[in-house]
Design a protein around this nucleic acid. Structure first.
Lengths: 233, 233
DNA sequence: CGATCTTTTGACCCCACTCAAGGTATGTGG
DNA sequence: CCACATACCTTGAGTGGGGTCAAAAGATCG
């Protein structure tokens, strides 16, 4: 059975928080793993949907997820791609406003009961500090995205997406990027049409800025050429 | 002396956090007022700029501020309008990536030394919880803005802006909105051109959805007519 | 009351979207 | 293992929403 990727959601618009954890041992965040449960998801499968009650924390263990908001007319905006180590799902409201779905087959997600996290935080100030820190980092990332969505051209968005993914996936700024998500996902992340994403990648390849080993393996062959297409600062 | 409103920044692109406090007494956040200092700002005056060191918390006492990112080529994106009660300026990085400027003459800002806030949080878990809550609320608001910037038409953005401002300024959802900021600010908040903002407001007025007492006083005369232009959910 | 900034409106244009069609992966069932 | 179905991806042609350029009227302020 084929799981539909495009429009797999149920017409959701959501609200949940996401942030990344750097990997150092003795990290207070690992305390919460004491009461984690894990679950495996298929490609496109929903981890939670719009309207579901909040109160659970989640962390990507392996694979990848997308947090998305969908209009009833089909328009979709991916608010974030969630990579291993990323937390998501905490909200102040009592219902989720945005859904989260697995992007790759076999994505594993850890779940943490919200009340037990809170109890642990109350007893452990270092954990609270850690969570605040993650929240602030997540906010900074969202602000950068608002810039991108609001004031960058199609090419600038695609370039900064490639650079972002290169920086997040590999250790440091690798030149080889594997885009596990579809062009549709990229388009809805960057608020462009699929066709524009495809055309822009083709154009970057023709200009020698990138090389495409196959559809999902991008090599940044000329970082200068890429960078020069992002104006200002 | 006239302070330039447009392009008042120094070519900034920034990173700071913002969130609102609801007003209930016995709010743990008020503990930090013990070591607040206040300052008054002129219209367009910078509260802090891109590149300035972080380590201070801020709260709008009265007036209004804007957090903005500017490209060297003149493109600007306003990330947030900061109203009385809103906190801003906290960041994980050691330098601000985005500047904050006063929007209205005589805006008063309270400043709190970051290390003293942290010390207080360490001694008072309720305060930490409160800050985390504000951060999550801020994140939810940013996610809604990403939707707006990414997937809404010009009219939808203007409409949701008016509704947002009506909800934030008055108590509840007042029908009378006073836009203290310029059309340029609105445009850069919604990632539109000034002309498009102006044209859209004119169009909404002609359709009877809003009434303009003067340039900055908007009355939502037909909320239905407004709402029907925001598709889906 | 002149200078500067803000707002509006008009004319025109272009970047990115839509529509369309063909090619390429990917996966499932026989 | 192959055939078929169902995505997913790319490219082309044409269109349109919102941007740019221009100009004039309206605010605001020293």
């Amino acid at each position: 059975m084929q799981v539909t990727q495009r429009h797999a959601g149920d017409g959701s618009v959501a609200s949940a928080q996401t942030f990344t954890t750097p990997d150092r041992s003795r990290d207070p965040i690992d305390l919460i793993d004491a009461f984690a449960t894990r679950r495996r998801y298929r490609r496109g499968q929903e981890i939670y949907g719009r309207g579901e009650p909040t109160g659970t924390w989640y962390r990507v263990v392996s694979g990848m997820a997308r947090q998305c908001a969908s209009f009833s007319d089909g328009r979709r905006q991916i608010l974030a791609f969630l990579l291993p180590g990323d937390f998501f799902g905490f909200a102040v409201a009592d219902q989720h406003h945005f859904s989260v779905e697995a992007v790759v087959e076999g994505t594993v997600i850890a779940r943490y009961p919200g009340d037990r996290v809170e109890a642990l935080v109350a007893a452990n100030p270092g954990l609270g500090e850690r969570i605040r820190r993650m929240a602030f980092e997540s906010m900074a990332r969202m602000q950068a995205r608002m810039l991108s969505l609001g004031r960058m051209t199609a090419r600038e968005r695609v370039v900064s997406f490639l650079v972002e993914m290169a920086g997040r996936s590999g250790a440091g700024a690798a030149e080889e990027v594997v885009l596990h998500m579809s062009r549709y996902d990229v388009a809805d992340y960057l608020a462009l049409s699929v066709e524009t994403v495809s055309r822009t990648l083709t154009s970057l390849r023709q200009r020698g800025a990138i090389t495409l080993a196959n559809t999902h393996q991008v090599r940044i062959s000329d970082r200068e050429a890429l960078a020069e297409r992002i104006h200002g600062s």
